[in-house]
Amino acid sequence: MSVRLPRWVLGFSALVYAFLHVPILVLMVFSFNDSKFSVNWSGFTFNWYHRLLERPDILRGLRASLIVGGASTVIATVLGTLIALALARHRFRGRTAFEGFLYVPIVTPEIVVGISLLILFALVKVPLGLTTIVIAHVAFSLSFVVIVVLARLEGMDRTLEEAAMILGADEVTTFWKVTVPQLWPGILSGALLAFTISFDDFVITSFVSGSGSSTLPIVVYGMVRRNVEPSINAISTIILLVTTALIYAADRLVRNK
């Protein structure tokens, strides 16, 4: 049975989609506008992108974001995949409680995560810097990786693993030669999400970054606070394009089961 959509539902939905996307599109278009103050279109320019390259704070922020993103993604992906494997393949005591516990970081407001880590680091006198940011990002993104990888594991055909074992492969060989290749898209999309979370995070990072370890969102926040200038549109556009590409890739990986 096909259900026809009422006209008003279509029109209303179109408006909501516009609300979700037009602000971002406008922001991007005006990163190419050849005027510092006006919101009228004054011609096309790459000027604001060139300006970014002249700003050492932005380049340093980008570098910090890439280091933090890379490190926290690797750690979160490895730890998260191991947890997902345990949940998918093993029965153990306290399993339900453990799964519940995994969801707590996801629902916890970022500001709570941020200040509680700040207190911890201050208490044990760890200086704030890139390391503390990585620790925080792993703690926050780990659960997301587990959920994505677990979804893939549960949809996976186990007969191939059984066949490998019957044919004489030991468990470790089976894991690397059969399980991992099948699981790869899940692991990769988990990693992409972890990187996106790290690359975009402002709130948690703002509490656990020291002076001299500002990631890109911290630098952008400082710019937004000072005044609205087209350079912010330019750097925002770059951030948006990077994350859109990552999310698109993750989306494709999950869907191609």
Partner: peptide
Amino acid sequence: VLPFWTSFLVRTFAMIF
């Protein structure tokens, strides 16, 4: 899904703009 994952900071700046 896309806005779900894009930078909250950038999206808030879009509102300011």
